[in-house]
Each structure stands twice: as C-alpha cells, then as structure tokens.
Amino acid sequence: MHARSDGQGRPLAFIPTGGEVSDYSSADSLIDIPVTTPCRFLSKKGYDSDRLREKRLFRGILPIIPPRSNRKEYIPYDLKHYKDRNHIERMFNTLKPFRRIATRYDKTRKSFLAFLHITAVKLWLAFFVNRT
C-alpha cells in the first residue's frame, strides 16, 4: 500500500498495490491527486530513481530521498527535512490498530480501499471535533 499524507501525518490518498510492484510505480499518481502541490517529496530509499527525481524537480517539488546503497554516485539529501518523514510512518502506525487493514481481510481491492477511506475519515474527524 502506498499513501500520501499532509505535513501533520493525516492521510490524503491511498493506492493499494501488490507486493511485487516496485515502489516508484505509484508515486506519479499519488502526486497527481487534486490537492495542493507539495513543496517537498519525502520518501524512503525504495523511491530512489533518476526519472522520479527529474519529474519532481520539473514540477517544482524538491525530492528528499536518501540514495540507495548500490547507486554509483552519491546524491546528497537534506537530512533535516528527511527527519519529518516520521509523520508518514506515524500515519501508517495509526492505521495498524484497525485489524481489518493490518491483516487485509478484504478479498477485493475495492473493498480494501473503501475501508482505508473509512479509516482515514475516522482519523481526520479528530481534527474537526471541538476538544474543549
């Protein structure tokens, strides 16, 4: 599963894929969702490719991706901004308590994606409710 989140770690979009699908194949469709264009693209080493970096830079998005260990030339990245990627990891950790998502009980992609959206709504509601 691939996801896009905002700066606060709230989910914006999900793309469920198979386990054999490479990471950077779904990056373009996550960026193209109709929300504001991000200024930085924080991701893990699995998204490290020259094509993906060039596409992000062409659109005005700064890719902050650590280089893979087998890369011939080292590409520097901003470690200070990369530390903000923990918001994305926290977003995934808020999804894990929902047993239906963690174990993927749903047989079809459509029903799994629907439950991901229901879970995202539940996570977003906490930001709209008056907590006083």
Rank of each mutant, 00 (worst) to 15 (best):
Y77E: 02
F92M: 11
R53Q: 09
R99Y: 06
I61G: 06
R104W: 04
F98H: 10
H117G: 06
E20P: 05
I31M: 10
P67V: 01
E20N: 14
T94W: 04
R99N: 15
L79R: 10
K44Q: 07
L52E: 04
H117I: 04
D84K: 15
S22A: 13
R104Q: 14
P34Y: 00
A102V: 09
I61M: 02
A27N: 08
A102M: 05
L57D: 03
F92A: 07
T103V: 12
H81T: 07
P38A: 01
S5Q: 03
E54H: 09
A13D: 15
P16D: 02
S43P: 13
T103K: 06
I33P: 09
L57G: 05
R90Q: 14
R56E: 11
L113R: 05
E89C: 04
I101M: 04
D106A: 01
K83G: 15
P66S: 01
D50W: 00
L52P: 12
R56H: 13
P38M: 02
R100Y: 07
P97K: 00
T94K: 14
S43M: 11
G60K: 01
I31H: 02
F98V: 05
K55T: 11
P16F: 00
L79K: 10
K110Q: 14
I75K: 08
L79A: 08
A13R: 11
D84N: 14
K110G: 02
R10W: 04
Q8S: 10
D6P: 15
R53S: 10
K44S: 05
T17E: 09
R59V: 04
V21C: 10
T103M: 08
E73Q: 12
L42Y: 03
S22V: 11
L52F: 01
S69R: 15
A114P: 12
L116I: 03
T103A: 12
N86H: 13
L52G: 04
L52I: 07
L95S: 09
R85V: 06
L95E: 08
P34F: 00
T17Q: 12
F98M: 08
I33T: 14
P67Y: 01
P76G: 03
K72W: 04
F14Q: 03
L52C: 08
L12A: 07
E54R: 15
K83N: 15
E73W: 00
E54G: 08
M91G: 08
G46W: 01
G60C: 01
S111H: 10
Y74M: 02
T37D: 10
E73N: 11
L62K: 09
D32Q: 12
E89I: 01
K72T: 13
A27L: 08
F115L: 12
H87I: 09
A102P: 14
R10F: 13
P16L: 09
R99P: 14
Y47F: 11
L62H: 12
L30V: 08
